[in-house]
Design a protein around this nucleic acid. Structure first.
Lengths: 210, 210
DNA sequence: TAGATTGTTAATCGATTAACAATC
DNA sequence: TAGATTGTTAATCGATTAACAATC
């Protein structure tokens, strides 16, 4: 095997390319170019061509890219040409919102199980999902062979729940709690904290009374 | 003025430093080092010192950083030593979750107004907030002098709503819709799309049946 | 004094861009 | 054929790291 490793920063852009291509597809478009993609995304055309060239040759000189073909290729590269079952841990406001979110299924994911540790919530429903006791998480997650989790518990519980998830086979965690997680090698974590994004913008905003 | 511009990638790390420092503060800690911060965040100590040095000298040789002092400095640098009023547009599941999120206020933000365009929702309440008619957004946002928005409308409406927000003085938008927005210079957009994060991880996951 | 850690410089590493031959 | 756009190379640009004098 002589495969080169793909820079993580390139991997991070692929979902954006895919999202834009799928939007174009829904607009009925058939062909695009690195230039058009770049304009839509605020990325240079050269960078898009360079990124794609890491995986093969998907375009035609003079013509550009078949949107459908490139979409299929990216879905395959990102392993979203299948549907990944996910577990949601934490049935608060965020857990509710992501359990009911309709935007997952056509992009490679679906919620399969929802857990919480509050007795008052266990047995209740969120949409079609019953909220299960987190005590049953190990057996249920193992049985369903689930590898992807969304973590929507308070920060104080995020690490313990993470350890349980990892022990039972979860290898990708999208963490909504505002805290850094420790995971072993081979487990992937992505963070989503609205305040981090907001503070990144407020840096550039002038306070009124400065 | 001879000020050097700060690389955006550095700005993006400051909220992570601040978040970790505030956590340490809540643990009752008084002093930390670039090494400890780095270990918690998975960032090199040298990088943290380099980043901070863009703004001044905040540490003591041999000792490290006063957590409280560095926290205050970062809050000032990021302009979160005040509270920014925010507007939430879209009162669906995501709008609900962010309107009720309790984690904003101690980190520099608070929800001030919530809007939707569905007549059935207008007048209803989310926690303490009345859902207002989006037709009233221009006057209300201008009157309250709101510069920060969270956008939780369907992708198909995200750009029109953005244009309205920008026209009425909003300069920072956290976009929950899975679509790229066009904004004029001087307006900042941050994106949060769970599927982008998930796909970034599924790239590294092996499909079962490969 | 000895140990620890900063702030900063210079070296290294990696990512982006510009340019162009190839070719549809 | 003329125009357009790819894939790729080399040059440029920027970010990270290693190392260390300064000093608490």
């Amino acid at each position: 095997m002589d495969r080169v490793t793909i820079p993580d920063i390139v991997v991070g852009r692929l979902p954006l390319y895919l999202r834009t291509l799928q939007l174009m597809l829904s607009e009925g478009r058939q062909v695009t170019s690195s230039q058009e993609l770049g304009e839509r995304l605020g990325i240079s055309a050269a960078q898009i061509r360079k990124d794609l060239s890491q995986f093969g040759e998907f375009g035609k000189q003079g013509t550009g890219y078949s949107i459908e073909f490139l979409t299929d290729q990216l879905r395959s590269i990102l392993h979203v040409d299948k549907i990944w079952d996910m577990v949601v841990v934490g049935a608060g406001d965020i857990g509710h919102a992501i359990s009911r979110y309709l935007g997952f299924s056509n992009r490679g994911f679906r919620v399969a199980l929802v857990f919480d540790n509050e007795t008052a919530k266990i047995g209740q429903k969120i949409g079609d999902f019953v909220i299960h006791d987190i005590a049953n998480l190990p057996s249920m997650v193992q049985k369903a062979n689930i590898q992807v989790a969304m973590l929507a518990v308070p920060a104080s519980q995020a690490q313990v729940v993470t350890d349980i998830l990892v022990k039972n086979g979860v290898r990708a965690i999208l963490n909504y709690a505002p805290i850094n997680l420790n995971v072993p090698k081979g487990v992937y974590v992505q963070y989503t904290d609205p305040v981090v994004h907001l503070q990144r913008m407020s840096f550039y905003l002038e306070s009124m009374n400065d």
